[in-house]
Design a protein around this nucleic acid. Structure first.
Length: 719
DNA sequence: GCGACATTGTTTTTT
DNA sequence: ACAATGTCGC
């Protein structure tokens, strides 16, 4: 057996991980330490050296992108066929189990998946159907509650309200939502995971079957697993199987959506014989960048403990620039990028990272003005576009007329005279008779319980759906789509309004025909689904790339979160200010603050050659002026690693600063100055008004917001 | 049923 | 500030 190509290009520690005989292995893989490589080589090792059949391997990731990459790299490395191996996302795999065993899972065969937008609409309808006020019971919050329950594995009947009326009501809505999902034959994302966990847990024979099959389970990004995903893995591993998990507690940045870093610790406890291997050698960044990353993350407590190192050189110091405001910040960064490009480097090697999406605007404007091509990650994805979702809703309703979410979405799109009043009556009937909208519509028409006009409009909609169903029997998938976009009137609907947007929308819809034409069902899934179901699932589960523009050498812009897993020669982290990064909403809470710090660590470790950090002294946020302080993260980077660039570019701070006025009339207070108030604490002078005894100052206090104070009364001291 | 105004929220994102 | 909803009047 030629083992050399599996172990050759690995370092000592990686080799140890790849070839470990242990049943339970935890690989703590620091940023840029070759974690995917270890996973891929491990799979190769299992199949070629240990003669494990690919059929008994299960490899789980979080994103479709990661699983596609893993599959690709495994196949590339492998001489033998990898047929039979399960590589996929938690949701993808859970979905597969549910399709195969829909009956045991208590589902209908044609069940469909609600994305979070569909889910929100449904939650809202349920709230209204219970005759609750949707301003008091905000759909988004209720959805959050439901998802949080499901992420913890709690069904409505399990939740104790402890006499709390709010909680009781929430559980009631949760319960009604579940009933609505059941009637419509749909499940949401969290339900997929929970339902598949329950499926395995409650069907011993099924569990035994899969436990026997998946002798080797590998999990990527383990720090991102939630309670259900952890339980799912644990259940499948059982007593006898082999488990290999890779994760990095320092890169756990998704706590806010249910991920539990503690699962790494829990794993150690639940599998006491676990061997822990730390990958600490970094192949990505310069020593300077790694020192900064280590220093910053060192401020977090409760780490499993890792220290990145490199055999490479120090490289350039970290650049730090404190800008006057966000425009100056953008100007500075873009000047540097221009320099970089004129040195013959690629724009695609440059990334601008920010904490929140709103920050991209100034950069976009400046880049546009400079005619520098850029690409923003994380925009609206193809299958998330409204016009595409409309088409999909038609397809879904044709597939299953009971699908209320689909029904509600398109019953009057394009407008066909079915107004709010009519729908209200239909909803009312659906609610009281505990049936779906479709069934309610049929009943009401039959009973002549509607005005002639409403009944006609509704009937013609039902007829239209029936016609479309008839036209689509035994027809290729792409022809179905073709039928839908034309027969439904969606194309005409958009043709009527002659804006550029609607042209784009029509193009998008026509693209859907192409997407359907190219769509193929994976071999091993074909037995569980017909093609249309597979396509509809694909549309929800893999909604495509955001902003997939034609490839060009572009500057990359994205949030720090979406930068995870990527790397760039040149990285700019901007807006590194208290209140923005760390975000205001995370500042108060120690554990959320630590998550922000990990996010900072993630950002720093994206850089291969050079890292630049900027902040602004003045920034407009939500239409208000703010004067944030530099982020604590900046001071956590050792000063000797940083070159502080204080040369300002031309933009100067607002014209209203006329120094002489400030000096003379404000008793020594200057705009921009930090002051201390005995009651309100620290703040910054924003503005002034009047003179003498009546002179007033506007001060932005850290915790109290902006206030106008009369100087002669307010006991302000200059800091 | 559609267009004009008001109201509202505004971290991060995948599935 | 601003975009994205929701409400109201025709």
């Amino acid at each position: 057996m030629d083992v050399s190509n599996i172990l050759n290009d690995l370092n000592e520690v990686q080799r140890e991980a790849v070839s470990a005989p242990d049943r339970s292995l935890l690989v703590l893989a620091g940023a840029g330490s070759g974690k995917t490589r270890v996973l891929v080589h491990r799979i190769s090792w299992l199949t070629t050296v240990e003669n494990v059949s690919p059929y008994s391997i299960l490899a789980v990731t979080f994103t479709n992108k990661a699983s596609a990459e893993m599959r690709q790299r495994v196949e590339k490395m492998q001489s033998q066929s990898m047929a039979g191996i399960w590589v996929g996302t938690f949701h993808g795999l859970a979905h597969r189990l549910l399709r195969s065993h829909w009956q045991q899972a208590g589902l209908v065969q044609s069940f469909q998946i609600l994305d979070s937008d569909d889910q929100l609409r449904l939650v809202k309808r349920v709230i209204l159907a219970l005759e609750l006020d949707d301003t008091q019971w905000q759909p988004k919050q209720v959805r959050g509650f439901i998802n949080a329950c499901k992420d913890e594995g709690d069904r409505p009947q399990h939740i104790a309200d402890n006499g709390d009326p709010v909680r009781r009501q929430l559980v009631r809505i949760y319960s009604a939502y579940e009933a609505a999902c059941k009637r419509a034959g749909v499940i949401d994302f969290a339900e997929m995971l929970l339902r598949s966990l329950e499926l395995l847990r409650d069907n011993k024979d099924l569990l035994a079957h899969y436990q026997q099959r998946f002798r080797h389970i590998l999990v990527d990004e383990f720090q991102d697993t939630n309670a259900i995903q952890y339980a799912w893995v644990r259940l499948l591993v059982g007593k006898d199987n082999n488990i290999f998990v890779v994760g990095d507690d320092d890169q756990a940045i998704y706590g806010w959506r249910g991920a539990r870093v503690e699962n790494l610790q829990k794993f150690r406890k639940d599998f006491p014989q676990t061997r822990i291997i730390k990958l600490e050698q970094n192949y990505r960044s310069t020593a300077t960048i790694l020192s900064a990353a280590n220093a910053v993350i060192g401020n977090n407590g409760d780490r499993l403990g890792k220290r990145l190192w490199t055999a490479g050189s120090d490289g350039q110091p970290i650049t730090y620039y404190q800008a006057y405001n966000e425009f100056d910040e953008a100007r500075f960064i873009i000047d540097k990028i221009k320099q970089w490009v004129s040195d013959g480097e690629l724009r695609a090697d440059v990334a601008i990272l920010y904490r929140s999406n709103a920050q991209s605007r100034v950069f976009e404007q400046t880049l546009n003005a400079e005619q520098i091509p850029y690409r923003i990650y994380g925009g609206l994805r193809y299958f998330d576009r409204a016009e595409i979702k409309d088409c999909i809703a038609y397809l879904r309703l044709m597939n299953n007329v009971l699908d209320d979410t689909a029904f509600e979405r398109i019953v009057n799109v394009p407008a066909r005279g079915i107004g709010g009043r009519t729908l209200e009556i239909v909803r009312e009937r659906a609610k009281t008779a505990e049936i779906t909208m479709w069934q309610a519509a049929e009943q009401l028409i039959k009973e002549k319980a509607l005005t002639a006009r409403a009944a006609n409009a509704l009937q013609s909609f039902l007829d239209l759906m029936a016609e479309m169903q008839a036209a689509c029997i035994d027809v290729e998938l792409h022809e179905k789509v073709e039928h839908v976009i034309h027969q439904s009137g969606l194309i005409e609907h958009h043709e009527k309004d002659k804006s550029e947007k609607s042209e784009q929308r029509i193009e998008n819809m026509e693209e859907l025909v192409g997407a359907a034409k190219n769509f193929t069902v994976a071999e091993d899934e074909a037995q569980d689904m017909d093609k249309i179901t597979a396509f509809l699932t694909y549309a929800v589960l893999e909604s495509g790339e955001g902003q997939a523009q034609e490839w060009e050498d572009c500057v990359q812009m994205m949030t720090l979160h979406s930068a995870k897993g990527l790397e760039f020669k040149q990285v700019y982290i901007c807006g590194v200010e208290e209140g923005l990064f760390p975000h205001q909403r995370s500042i108060e809470d120690a554990s959320r603050l630590e998550e922000e710090r990990r996010l900072c660590y993630v950002g720093i470790t994206r850089a291969r050659e050079q890292l630049t950090i900027t902040n602004a002294e003045h920034r407009q946020l939500y239409g208000r002026d703010t004067y944030p302080r530099a982020s604590r993260f900046i001071s956590e980077i050792p000063a000797e690693l940083v070159a502080d660039v204080r040369l300002r570019t031309q933009v100067s701070e607002p014209q209203y600063v006329s120094d002489d006025l400030c000096e003379n009339e404000t008793g020594g207070f200057q705009i921009g100055q930090r002051v201390m108030h005995p009651k309100f604490g620290e703040g910054m002078v924003l503005n002034f008004e009047g003179s003498g005894a009546h002179a007033r100052l506007e001060v932005n206090f850290e915790f109290e917001g902006t206030k106008w104070l009369v100087i002669s009364y307010a006991n302000l001291s200059i800091l």
